[in-house]
Every structure is written in structure tokens, then in C-alpha cells.
Design a protein around this nucleic acid. Structure first.
Lengths: 229, 229
DNA sequence: TAGTGGTCTAGACCACTCA
DNA sequence: GAGTGGTCTAGACCACTAT
């Protein structure tokens, strides 16, 4: 048996999709719906809360619940570790750590990681391979103060990505997606022609107020990021 | 006062982030945690359920709750109507409907929309403008049977995008993001040089089992899609 | 000020699944 | 079979906000 708040959520969704409750209109209160469906208010509450999380309705105390005037679509997408991304396609994963040095980061990175002026940071370049073919190219700056252990990490065995994930598992962050033309350097790394359009993920993560790392990941030609609405 | 399930969720998160509960380890049961925090089991349940939705823990009946072995990061991103995307940046939105014709769709579209063999569909090309400069170029196939009213829709006044959103507000769908080089045709529309890397959103939507539309949206040079982890 | 959603509680039963 | 999470209920109080 499917659970009741599930059933009620689908029923409510149906009344929205069918047009019974128009865009922007007020729908009945929790108590009334509970009577209508013969269940506790808590159950209706959960169904409506879920719909609100999905962006289908907007709820306000005293104001009641309204169907969203301009439907908001939210895509949920997983951002996996590159290794898993590769292995999920049945290919063999490997990686090359091309560069690993401490250096003064450029101003843009310094600002992003909120590093003080003369502070050095760790810079790494990694090429991720799938069946020995370039899969993604990664450039990354790391705040050494945040993860001092990285100085002794065996980054040839485990990618920086994975090492960080295991030492600072659940950080916060922001991420942006865009398209860029491969410059000469990246084209050489990824073995594509210069100018090839590549999918770029730019990601910065921190733990509480401490900035950990910022990374750019250039994916191979034809890469797609999929999601469900 | 911040609510209790909120507080408990943060507390639990802290114990994960601090390493007290290692990756993959079993954490105490709901009853024990409820005693520990002096609240009802329901409250702990809600906190843990939220963490599970966020991908931080995995829950199994009888198996208990475990910290995810390989942290899964989920990005939630809003897919707005192009008009709102433009207007949110303070620019003026307009659009040109370049093409509108019924035609036999190519096999790939036919397959996607699950149209029968000789079925015609509506094809539209729209250029979205921000302050009269190209913002995004849209190609779209529409299943006429699903939305017959579209034949009489004033698509010069309202973009196809918006019209569909208002007639079929809450459909299901899938979406993919990728990077492509502008071909000669798209380059001319978007006023960029051929080969320019463009961010592409490819989206198909349906209502229950009825396929509505499939669309490709090529964004202007430098476009970024942002999200929070 | 009154009405609506937000949340907590205590207790209960059930479904799943590990041992 | 037993233990864990999944859920429902009935009642309660509170916070916000529209009027």
C-alpha cells in the first residue's frame, strides 16, 4: 500500500494539473482538506509541505496556500565524484596529477577563498581519464590552513577530489555551469581541437566560515549533465 | 525561536562534519537520539528524514541510519522562464518568433515525443532578447494533439515558452545541460562567431503519459547557470 | 485580532529487512 | 523473529500576517 500523504499529494497535484485550482488561486485550508480526505491535518500538512518544497504551491500563515502564479521548475542534480561518474559508465578510471605546487593564488581566487594578502595556497592540476582517454581536466586551489593534512596526502594514489571528499566530507558550496571554448592549453590536455566547446563546472566549497577549495572542471566533448524535473 | 527539528538537524550535521560519526558508520537510532535531545521521536525522525533527502545519510528499516559512504552532493537549480531570467537582471525582455510551421518532425523528435509515423507537429524558432540583444535561441517541437489551442495562440504577443507554461503549468520532464559550438545558423541568430561555445539546455516535458514538447535553448556567450550545494 | 500554517508530542501500528 | 524506520492520529500551542 502506498502511503497516505503520498496519495493525498498526488490527488492535490491532480487538481492543480487539471486546472481545478488555477494558477495563483487560493486552495482550501488544511483543516478543510483533512475533512475532505478523511485524515488528520498533519497528513495534509505533509502533502502540502512537499508540494511547497517542489515549488508548486506557496504557503503563508494566515494567507493560506496558493498555486504558484509562475510555475517554478526545480531540477535536482547529483554532482558525483568524477571517479564514480566514469565507473558508472562501465569504463576504467584513472587520473594523472600533472601539477602540485604551493603558490600565490591569483586575485580572483584569493577573493573567493577569502585568503589574506600574502597567503600561499596549494594548486593542483589533474587529468581524469576514462579507459585512458581524457574525461575531464581539473584545476584547483586549496586553502592549506583548512586542510593541513593535504601536504602529506598520497595524491598520486587518490585524486585530490577524492581525498578532499574523504577528509572534509560534507561541506557547503556553490556551483555554476557554463560553456567555454577550449584554449590551447586545455585543448592539448583534453586532446581536442582548440576552440572545442567544453562543459565547465566551477565549484567552491567551504565548511562553516572556512573556505576549503575552489575548482574548475572541464568535461570532455559531448558531455551531458542530466536531470529530472 | 528556531524550530526544534531544525536545531536537531544542525546538531546531527555537526556530528557528521566533525567526524564523530565517520563516513559509512551507523548512527544511533531514533529512539536513542530522541532521549538524548529530550524530544519526541517524530522530531528526530523529521531531522533525519531531511538529512536523508539531502543525501547526507542513508536510512533503512531495521538496518538503521548510516552516514553516506560516498558523499552525494545534490544541487537544486531553478529553471525559470526566459523572460524572468532576463527581467531579473534588470534588462528589458522581448522576443521574435522566427518560424512557426507544422511539419513532419525528424525521427529523433518523433521518437522522443512518441508520435506516430505520419503525424505532423508544430515547429517554432524563437529568439529571446535582452535589451534588444540576443539572449537565447530556442527551437521547439510541440505535440499539437496535446495542446490543440496552440493553433490559435497569439505567439507574437507571448512566447511559446510562456504560453505553454500557462496552459500546461505543471508537467513532468527531463532536462540535460551541455556545451556546443555554435554552427553557422545559430551563430547568425545569436550574433556570435561560428564555433562560439554556447550553453545548451535540452528539455522534454509531458503530462502523465502525453508528451507535450521538446526544446533546445542555446544561451548567449558567457551564460552561467548557478546553484547552491 | 483572528485565521492560517508550522511544529511538537505521545502513542500506535505497520513494513521492511537483518540476523 | 525482532528491531528499525515510515507513517498516521489527535490534540495542542505558537508564529506570523492579512484584514
Amino acid at each position: 500500500m502506498t502511503t497516505s500523504h503520498h496519495i493525498i499529494r498526488e490527488a492535490l497535484l491532480g487538481r492543480i494539473q487539471s486546472g481545478e485550482w488555477a494558477l495563483g488561486s487560493l486552495i482550501p485550508g488544511e483543516i478543510q482538506l483533512a475533512q475532505e480526505y478523511g485524515c488528520a491535518r498533519t497528513t495534509v500538512n505533509r502533502a502540502l509541505r512537499t508540494l511547497a518544497e517542489q515549488g508548486l504551491v506557496v504557503r503563508k500563515r494566515k494567507g493560506g496556500t496558493r498555486v504558484r502564479a509562475t510555475p517554478l521548475r526545480q531540477a535536482k542534480l547529483d554532482i558525483p565524484i568524477v571517479r564514480e561518474q566514469v565507473e558508472r559508465t562501465g569504463q576504467n578510471y584513472s587520473h594523472n596529477l600533472l601539477i602540485r605546487r604551493t603558490d600565490l593564488p591569483p586575485a580572483s581566487v584569493k577573493k573567493r577563498l577569502r585568503l589574506s594578502e600574502a597567503k600561499q595556497a596549494l594548486y593542483c592540476e589533474t587529468l581524469h581519464l576514462a579507459n585512458d582517454r581524457p574525461f575531464a581536466f581539473e584545476t584547483r586551489w586549496i586553502n592549506i590552513d583548512a586542510v593541513p593534512d593535504i601536504n602529506t596526502a598520497p595524491l598520486d594514489m587518490m585524486s585530490v577530489n577524492e581525498w578532499l571528499v574523504n577528509s572534509v566530507p560534507f561541506s557547503n558550496g556553490d556551483v555554476s555551469f557554463s560553456a567555454v571554448n577550449a584554449d590551447e592549453f586545455i585543448a592539448r590536455q583534453m586532446k581536442v581541437t582548440k576552440g572545442q566547446a567544453l562543459f565547465l563546472i566551477d565549484r567552491t566549497t567551504w565548511l562553516d566560515a572556512t573556505f576549503i577549495t575552489t575548482m574548475k572542471l572541464y568535461y570532455h566533448k559531448g558531455f551531458q549533465l542530466n536531470s529530472v524535473l
